[in-house]
Simulated scan of single mutants.
Amino acid sequence: MRRYRTLIAGALLLTGAAPAEPARYPPRSILLFVASWCAPCHGELRQLPAIAAGAGAYRVLVVPIDRGRVTDAMLRVVPAEQLWRPDMERLAELRGDLLAKTAGLPFSVAIGGDGRACAMHRGGMTAASAREMRVECEG
């Protein structure tokens, strides 16, 4: 195993290539953070089809930051393919890495093709703001 690692390291040095890091977040997506206690978040969920249309090729993923019956009821309007429920460890990582950049909700983050944040939006998301985030990431 050690010899194998040495060979890979040598090959990387010769080619100048660095090992690719795995994507931190779902690539080409807009993460829409919501919570049951956030009144504007409920409004955003009612606008989800329009927001998704504005996002174009980027997937809109709803990320609940709280758990419970009220949250489950709120999320019934979200199609399963647009819901991302990270486990508690991953949610803690999201809180420290992305949610720490805002004072509260509503808050959205666009993730580029490399799996890294490329645009942020504070306040209620609309089709126009989703489009602006996508353009910022592609530009």
Rank of each mutant, 00 (worst) to 15 (best):
D66F: 06
A53R: 14
V62G: 00
L99A: 03
L105N: 00
A80C: 08
P26V: 13
W37R: 01
V34P: 00
A55Q: 08
M88P: 02
L91M: 15
Y58G: 04
L32H: 09
A73K: 04
W37M: 02
E44D: 12
S29R: 05
L32W: 04
E93K: 12
A39C: 01
R28G: 04
E44V: 05
K101T: 11
G68F: 10
D72K: 08
G104H: 11
L91P: 00
C41T: 08
E44H: 01
T71V: 07
A50W: 05
V60C: 01
Q82N: 15
S36C: 03
L48E: 06
T71L: 04
V109W: 10
L91E: 13
L32D: 11
A50R: 12
R95H: 13
W37F: 09
V60N: 00
M74N: 03
T102Q: 06
A92E: 15
L98H: 10
L105Y: 04
I65E: 11
L32P: 01
E44W: 03
P64R: 09
M74I: 07
A57N: 06
F107T: 05
R59M: 02
A53I: 02
V70Y: 05
V62S: 01
A100P: 00
L105E: 03
L98Q: 09
S36Q: 12
E89D: 13
A92P: 01
P26K: 13
G43K: 08
A50I: 04
E44Q: 12
Y25F: 15
E81K: 06
G56S: 05
G54W: 12
A35L: 04
L99Y: 06
M74A: 10
L105T: 01
R59S: 11
L83H: 03
G56V: 09
L91H: 07
P27D: 11
R46T: 10
R28W: 07
R28I: 06
L75I: 00
A80L: 12
L91N: 07
Y25T: 07
G96A: 15
L83Y: 02
C38T: 10
G54V: 10
A50L: 11
L91G: 04
V62H: 02
S36D: 14
I30A: 10
E93C: 08
W84N: 05
R24L: 15
E89A: 15
V63D: 08
V109D: 08
G96R: 15
A52C: 08
F107A: 10
R85S: 03
E44N: 08
L98E: 10
L94K: 02
F107D: 08
V78M: 09
A100Y: 10
L105V: 02
G43E: 13
L61N: 06
Q82P: 00
R24Q: 15
R67L: 07
R90D: 06
A73L: 08
A103S: 13
L61K: 05
A52I: 12
G56Q: 11
Y25G: 09
S108G: 03
P49T: 14
K101N: 13
L45D: 01
P49Q: 14
S108M: 07
E93H: 14
D87R: 11
R76T: 12
W84H: 07
V63A: 09
P86F: 15
V60P: 00
R69L: 13
